[in-house]
């Protein structure tokens, strides 16, 4: 990871507890809701940066959050609008700074070895067991087949569950997203 790229800023300012509490209070008076909103903003900033082909997306997202927290005493009183959009603008600036410093575009790496796929399978099994049974059933039914059969099957599942095909897609994709987060966490933590 290229943590050194942002070392100077980390050295000059770091997010302390007071700043963090202020940031959460700005996001939502309810601390628990504020915590959820903080996580959402971090995830979305990361996603946006990844989609810009930033291979240090999480670091840049954290840097953007720190900058907002640092800047917050100045802007908090007069800022109007959704705080999330402010984070987005700051993240764009952080990204531009990173692009200027980035030496070269990385080449597309070689495919991962088979062991990675096997580890993914083990994590997948583990995470499937952690799913709610009805969610798991819907997801397995939804993703088990391909092609025309898949479309017919999904229509049948939607009819069986008494929901629209779009609602079924949303439910199945949410479960898959939960599963993916679990698998990625499993892979990162070496739980496989």
């Amino acid at each position: 990871m290229n943590e050194d790229e942002f070392a100077p800023r980390k050295k000059t300012w770091s997010l302390d507890q007071e700043s963090f509490d202020r940031l959460l209070a700005w996001l939502d008076p309810n601390r628990e809701a504020a915590g959820r909103k903080y996580e959402e903003i971090r995830v979305r900033l990361t996603k946006i940066l990844v989609r810009r082909s930033c291979y240090v997306a999480e670091e840049l997202a954290d840097e953007a959050i720190n900058r907002v927290a640092r800047k917050l005493p100045e802007i908090q009183e007069n800022y109007v609008g959704d705080p999330a959009l402010y984070f987005c603008g700051v993240a764009g600036n952080v990204f531009l700074e990173w692009v200027k410093k980035r030496p070269v575009s990385l080449p597309i790496p070689a495919p991962d070895p088979p062991e990675v796929l096997e580890a993914n399978h083990r994590c997948l099994d583990k995470c499937l067991d952690e799913l709610n049974p009805s969610d798991r059933e819907v997801m397995l039914d939804y993703f088990r087949e391909e092609g025309r059969t898949k479309i017919n099957r999904r229509n049948a599942i939607a009819e069986k569950l008494g929901m629209s095909i779009n609602a079924l897609r949303t439910r199945a994709c949410r479960v898959k997203k939960t599963l993916k987060e679990c698998v990625i966490k499993c892979m990162r933590c070496g739980e496989h």
Binding site: L106, F143, V183
Partner: peptide, 27 residues
């Protein structure tokens, strides 16, 4: 260019590859 050059993108691809091959067996 967009997905395979980032760790998150590679995780997404690996996960989906595992998902695509493993889910039909599990199902």
């Amino acid at each position: 260019q967009s997905f395979l050059t980032t760790p998150q993108g590679r995780l997404d691809v690996n996960f989906n590859e595992a998902f695509r091959t493993h889910i039909p067996k599990v199902a």
